[in-house]
């Protein structure tokens, strides 16, 4: 009895400990390293930044961290503009994705069980190809000599190619296309569990279908909507590949700025500070929304 109990305790410790250890090792620790680098100055050499602690006059090491990089980020309009533009693009793209994904998820949840699995497979199918290749493929579709423009020209709809690539439109298209499954799946998950008798009850109480949707289906699918919005917003804010391949020179997004600071300017500390600000930016709405949509059962 006692031995079995101890084993369960140990097993439970392992179950909790494994993901916890993973989080410490691969999330918390790297974040702390990035944060530490964000507090120092760049220099030539390896590593390309000054140490955080130095041998001072006394026995204790001296702390050399400064907040200069953060002050620079918030005083330079380029960085602020990049952040604001990233948020604007990510929020709009997430909302567009929601509008497209909700009907898809709804339709899949309402089809018979025979068609549900193949339809879900189709949603996930793009993951079988590398993200980078799929985004790159869009350049072939969108450029002035690409599939769309050529087709329209052959049909005589247009004389001159439409500017489809290297602008904000292409960035939106890329984000919506790439992250659609992340919106469809969580919404599908809540709709699939929805008790459709509730809609009959709403109809019975006098609610036409659209009222029943607004008053019953939509509020009950809110957890899926919030999860989907976060799953699209979070990667989209820091997105680099999509604005780099599909965006124009004017498409200002923080992911590109960060890349430039890191790889072109070799300013690791400033890049780290940008990464930390981005992290806070992403975590704040995530935590806030997670609180708002916490299930009432848990809150009680």
């Amino acid at each position: 009895m006692k031995a079995a109990g101890r084993l369960t305790v140990r097993a439970r410790g392992l179950v909790v400990g494994l993901p916890f250890g993973w989080l410490v090792l691969f999330v918390l620790l790297p974040s702390l390293i990035v944060f530490a680098i964000s507090l120092v100055e760049p220099r030539l050499g390896a590593p390309p930044f000054t140490p955080l602690f130095s041998h001072g006059s006394g026995a204790l090491p001296r702390f050399d961290g400064k907040l200069d990089n953060y002050l620079l980020i918030f005083s330079d309009s380029l960085y602020v503009a990049a952040f604001l533009s990233s948020i604007r693009i990510a929020v709009s793209a997430a909302l567009i994705t929601l509008v497209l994904a909700y009907p898809m998820a709804y339709a899949i949840a309402r089809t018979g069980p025979r068609w549900r699995t193949p339809l879900l497979m189709l949603v996930v199918l793009p993951f079988w190809t590398s993200f980078l290749i799929r985004v790159y493929a869009w350049t072939g579709i969108l450029n002035s000599n690409g599939l769309v423009n050529n087709a329209l020209r052959h049909l005589g709809v247009i004389a001159e190619p439409l500017p489809l690539l290297h602008n904000e439109f292409a960035v939106y298209l890329g984000i919506v296309y790439s992250y659609l499954p992340f919106m469809v799946l969580p919404i599908y998950a809540v709709l699939e569990r929805l008790d459709w008798k509730l809609l009959e009850a709403a109809a019975d109480l006098g609610a036409p279908p659209w009222r029943a949707f607004l008053r019953v289906t939509l509020p009950l699918s809110l957890p899926g909507i919030v999860a989907g919005l976060l799953l699209v917003f979070i990667p989209a804010v820091g997105e680099f590949i999509i604005p780099e391949l599909l965006g124009g020179p004017g498409t200002l997004m923080i992911g590109r700025v960060l890349w430039t600071e890191f790889f072109s300017n070799h300013d690791w500390p400033l890049a780290s500070a940008l990464a930390i600000v981005l992290l806070v930016l992403v975590l704040t709405p995530a935590i806030a929304l997670a609180r708002v949509t916490r299930r009432p059962e848990d809150a009680a």
Binding site: A201, A203, P208, V216, P219
Partner: peptide, 20 residues
């Protein structure tokens, strides 16, 4: 007539109370 235009109301076996 659709259910929302009938002068009847129903009590469901599972009650179908709106959980939210």
């Amino acid at each position: 007539a659709p259910p929302y235009r009938r002068p009847v109301n129903m009590m469901f076996q599972s009650y179908a109370l709106f959980p939210h």
